[in-house]
Write a protein that binds this DNA or RNA. Sequence first.
DNA 1: CTTGACAATCCTGCATACAGTATCGCAGAC
DNA 2: GTCTGCGATACTGTATGCAGGATTGTCAAG
Lengths: 216, 216
Amino acid sequence: MSIGESHRALRDEVADQLRSWILDGTLAPGSRLGEGAISERLGVSRLPVREAFRRLEAEGLVQTAPRRGVRVAVFDQEELATIQEIRLALELIAVRKTAERRDSETMNELERVLLAGSQAAEAGDQSALKRLNGDFHELLAGGTGSRVLVALLRSVRNQAHHLVGGLVTSPEDSWSEHARVIRAVLEADAEMAALLMRRHLHDRHESQRATLTPNP
Amino acid sequence: MSIGESHRALRDEVADQLRSWILDGTLAPGSRLGEGAISERLGVSRLPVREAFRRLEAEGLVQTAPRRGVRVAVFDQEELATIQEIRLALELIAVRKTAERRDSETMNELERVLLAGSQAAEAGDQSALKRLNGDFHELLAGGTGSRVLVALLRSVRNQAHHLVGGLVTSPEDSWSEHARVIRAVLEADAEMAALLMRRHLHDRHESQRATLTPNP
DNA sequence: CTTGACAATCCTGCATACAGTATCGCAGAC
DNA sequence: GTCTGCGATACTGTATGCAGGATTGTCAAG
């Protein structure tokens, strides 16, 4: 591993910045992203911005119209439902495979997260829980050892997250369900872990639907 | 013939060309893709090539190492198995949703493909069958109305295809299974269509595994 | 003959520059 | 008052140039 590998390409920095702006709502869905404006704002040339656009485009966070620039992605209800369905399927594959593989490093990390999460829940540390909830999903994807699955899941999660406009459930509620999944994975009970994950995501999905369409 | 004079965005042309070169084996897995060599060969500047790289990178066809260029993707057996699993899950979602939605245009197209495929199978027209088999999968993805799913499936199929090095089953065998799936979709029998699709992909997967690891 | 270090060369990453096209505003006509 | 056509402007798409790191070849030492 050479020193140069740690050097981060400017396009990656730009992509990360834009991603967080999109996910935290700074850039609203449908808003236009001009190369010039972004490059000026970030103090880089237009080229890294363009390459970052291509990546975000592949992640589904932005949509490109030829000769008309880039916009923050906007999807309809039906597409949102499909994305949730895709995410559920991929998360189930991930949690099963991780529980079956039992990669030692992942298991250690999961134990660490489980411990830290319990403490954070007891202390009522919301921001720590939010971070740990994110770690949870990343670990389950990474535990499969599949770069493809990690990339797909990250992409689908981004889409789902930015479409529903952020968290509709409290970090504590998410955490208690996550903790159960982690315990099942640590006990190598893949089917139980998958069942818990399915229930977890299904509940989230339903509560989001209820929020979005309040009148049945 | 240089494609630099076309009206379509050059990055799309370059990406298409590179994709077909990768899928048909002209560019072998692991081979390095230099910006300069590609741009010179296609008669364009390096910039469209770079942007095409980003897209192929997102599609999983190439892998990028910082400062060390781009290589045609190489995955191990385990990753291959995961990709097949992902593909199966996504195809099942697609076929179910298409059968439930029954989008009229897609249904018409499926009927057309079914008819044309039967004729081609009777005539023994291999190349036509190959094309229709491709149409089959594209239609099932498109019938969901989800651009996200279409993009994901195309990406995963590319990976699976290029990893196993092409077709291991005859177009006729694929076609007969495809035809059954189409009939189930046209009859709005989503569960039957999903079952047939599952069996179809599972059989392909097994025969590929057998080919790759001849000694059990 | 093998191995390690150094240097030349190649290539990637980024910035700047230019051409072509879409968008927007304004003016004039119906 | 509204619609249409023209022009200016801004932005995308593409090309070229340059700096810094990576790769490779060579030479010398063990």
